[in-house]
Amino acid sequence: MKKTPIELNVNGQTRTVLVEPRELLIHTLREQLELTGPHVGCETSHCGACTVEIDGRSVKSCTLFAVQAAGAEITTVEGLASPDALHVLQTSFREHHGLQCGYCTPGMITRAHRLLQENPNPTEEDVRFGLAGNLCRCTGYQNIVKSVLAAAEELNTQKEAAQA
């Protein structure tokens, strides 16, 4: 099948890749751009292991063609940390034991990152509803929810400190 060149902006870098029209974004990210954060866990958009951010929205990259993401700003878990430090969510997941096998974690953290932009002061119920598109088989979610709520608090504290 004929391949088409497209430009993808991933984690702040622009890359040109050759894709078949039918190629799924998750495969482009994993096979061509050699990212190991987004994972494949199903093919029906249920598990969320492949979650990335596209133009400020959480998107399941296993059910989007790469060509549909051409020109868009894509962020994966690899793009969350700054050069000096991990993102608050990343440290919070470790601090509160919000992961076990780690397979859902990149998608979960990427989704949580967007959730906290949408709602910086979520209740436990908000977090549970907001993460319902991402499945975890190991943790029973309790510590994931704890991690996200703690991260929200920390991010708000940092924001207040920066404004003071």
Partner: peptide, 18 residues
């Protein structure tokens, strides 16, 4: 705290498909 988490939270796991 788990030593595994530093890799996993950054998408640096190494699963079979990786």
């Amino acid at each position: 705290k788990r030593v595994e988490d530093v890799r996993f939270t950054q998408g640096r796991g190494n699963y079979v498909d990786d």
